[in-house]
Amino acid sequence: MIILGVDPGSNITGYGIIKVLEKDGKLDRTELIPVDYGVIKVDDREHFNIRLKKIYDELVQIINQHRPTDLAIETAFYGKNFQSAYKIGHVRGVVILSAVNSGISVFEYTPREIKKAVVGRGNATKEQVQFMVKAILGLKNFPEFYDVSDALAVAICHVNKTFVPNKARFRDWKAFLKAHPELAEGEIDLKSRRKKK
Rank of each mutant, 00 (worst) to 15 (best):
A117D: 14
V159E: 08
P181K: 10
H180A: 05
V154Y: 12
V133T: 05
G120Q: 08
P68T: 11
E144H: 00
V159M: 07
V95E: 10
L152N: 12
D172E: 14
F77R: 08
Q83R: 07
Q128M: 13
S105M: 07
N123V: 01
K178N: 04
D70H: 13
P68F: 10
R92W: 05
I104G: 02
G138N: 03
K134H: 02
A72D: 14
P165F: 02
V91H: 06
A179Y: 06
T69N: 15
A117R: 02
Q83H: 06
K134F: 07
Q130T: 14
Q130M: 15
N81F: 11
D172Y: 06
I114T: 04
R92C: 07
I156V: 12
K174G: 00
V164I: 15
K87F: 00
G120R: 00
W173M: 15
V129P: 01
K178Q: 12
Q83M: 13
C157P: 13
K87T: 01
K134L: 11
A99I: 05
Y146F: 13
Q65W: 08
C157E: 08
P143A: 06
A99Y: 08
I104L: 11
Q65P: 00
L139T: 05
P143Y: 03
K126Y: 12
G138C: 07
H90E: 15
I114C: 05
H180C: 01
A135F: 04
A155C: 03
M132V: 02
V148G: 00
E113R: 01
G138S: 10
T110C: 01
E108I: 01
I88N: 07
A85N: 10
I73W: 12
D70S: 09
E144Q: 14
E108L: 02
V95P: 06
V119K: 04
R67N: 10
G79T: 03
V164L: 14
T75N: 13
R171Q: 13
F163C: 06
E182S: 12
V129L: 12
I156P: 08
S149D: 04
K116A: 13
S149A: 05
H158E: 13
L71I: 05
A117L: 11
A179D: 09
N81G: 05
T110R: 05
P165V: 06
A76M: 13
F176R: 08
K126M: 01
A135C: 02
K178W: 00
L71T: 02
L71C: 10
G93P: 11
V164M: 13
R92A: 03
D150R: 06
Y78T: 01
S84D: 07
V91G: 06
Y86K: 07
A135W: 02
V95I: 07
D147M: 03
W173T: 05
L177R: 08
H90G: 09
L139Q: 00
E74C: 10
Y109L: 07
A85G: 06
S98T: 10
I88C: 11
A117Q: 04
N166L: 14
L97P: 01
I136V: 14
